[in-house]
Simulated scan of single mutants.
Amino acid sequence: MQPTLLILAAGMASRYGSLKQIQQFGPSGETIIDYSIYDAIRAGFGKIVFIIRENFAAEFKEIFEPKLKGKVETAYVFQDMNAFTEGFEVPADRTKPWGTAHAVLCAKDAISEPFAVINADDFYGRDAFEKMAEFLRNECDSNRYSVVGYELGKTVSEYGSVSRGVCEVNAEGNLAGIVERTKITVEDGKIAYEDGDQKVELGPKTPVSMNFWGFDPSVFEVSEKLFSQFLEQNLSNPKSEFFIPIVVDSFIAAGLGSVKVIPTSSQWFGVTYKEDAPGVQASLSALVNGGEYPDNLWK
């Protein structure tokens, strides 16, 4: 069975103001999402499911349907504030979506096979997609999930601090825990995060999560239960979010199974700061010139 790729794109419109300005980085106007989909198709993914907001669905489909028609199956799912909130009254002042794990949960009816989850605006690299596809085909089941572990040194920005989910990996190569470290910066070639008024150094090979997960559909049931608990505790906090690591940590802690950390040599890149954009463009040009990608992905 071919795995599915779930792309978290519900936050895109707010960041770009309008989808018409989705940033084009490739030589033929490709966006970062285009490269992820291209890598997924050649790694053997059979379906692409986009999580978007209903109010920009038409615009979104206009961009992606012509490119992907006949190349891969597509589906669209809306992240709706009221989805899975039965028994709870969503506060009127709540404008922020419920977070990445809620976005995944919204795809419950669209996915019945092992699937990967990625962010729309991160470039993950061919190696990561190939290893994830292999995991989903051969190893994934209801008690075996995965996350791609990037080398921290390949995910930092020289233009400011970043936040990363630092993975604690046990002797079996499985995830023991994931800690969100904020304000990670590079100074004089050394990488460190702020902890109070201390700076704590991290090695460049430290594995971090860039939100590239591999799940069995059983994750929907796990998430649904946890989301109810989350709402009980956080309903009145307008900034609270239900993130994927909350589900994963709970899955491990409850003894439901293990999460394999898949190491990758891929260079991650994304646009955390607008100054990052020229570097992303240059990196993609180098990959195209090196023969890793054609100069027009969808020709």
Rank of each mutant, 00 (worst) to 15 (best):
F25A: 14
P91M: 06
E113H: 15
D276M: 13
A282I: 05
V166M: 09
R144L: 08
I262S: 06
Q229E: 14
P114L: 01
T85D: 05
G87Q: 00
K20R: 13
T206D: 05
R15V: 10
V261I: 05
I51E: 02
P66F: 06
T95S: 02
V148F: 09
P263N: 05
P245I: 09
W98T: 01
R53C: 07
E292W: 07
I37W: 07
V219F: 14
K299N: 15
Y35E: 05
D216T: 02
P238I: 04
E194W: 13
A75N: 10
L136F: 11
V162G: 05
S283Y: 13
F60Y: 14
E89F: 05
F45S: 01
P27G: 03
V219H: 11
E134L: 13
I184A: 14
A254H: 10
L235T: 03
P27C: 03
R42N: 15
Q267T: 11
F115M: 00
V90P: 04
V169N: 01
V186D: 06
A9I: 00
V90Q: 02
W213G: 09
A282K: 15
V288K: 04
S112M: 09
G11W: 03
G196N: 06
P207N: 02
F220A: 01
I7G: 00
P245M: 11
I51K: 02
F123K: 05
A176I: 08
E292I: 14
T95K: 08
R94N: 00
E134K: 15
E62F: 04
V162C: 15
I63E: 01
K108P: 08
P245G: 09
S250D: 14
L297M: 07
L68I: 03
M132V: 12
F243G: 00
R144Y: 09
E151T: 05
E292N: 06
E73G: 11
K225L: 12
K239F: 14
E113I: 14
W268S: 08
A43L: 06
T272E: 15
G196F: 02
D122N: 14
N237H: 09
G165L: 09
P97S: 07
G99E: 06
I48Q: 10
V280R: 03
G153N: 01
Q229C: 07
F64R: 03
Y293E: 05
A57Y: 03
I118G: 12
A58P: 01
R42V: 15
G214Q: 10
Q24H: 09
G291H: 01
G125Q: 05
V200A: 07
Y124S: 07
D109G: 00
F215N: 08
S265H: 12
S285C: 10
A110H: 11
T155H: 03
E62G: 10
G99Y: 08
D195T: 09
R137Y: 04
L8C: 08
E194A: 15
I33W: 01
G99A: 08
E54M: 02
N82W: 03
F230P: 00
R137N: 04
E168C: 13
F88C: 04
D127E: 14
R164L: 14
F123H: 12
V179I: 15
Q267M: 11
N289G: 14
S36K: 06
Q233E: 15
Y150R: 04
G173K: 08
A43H: 09
A176C: 04
K96V: 02
V271D: 14
W213T: 07
T74M: 12
L226K: 10
G196C: 02
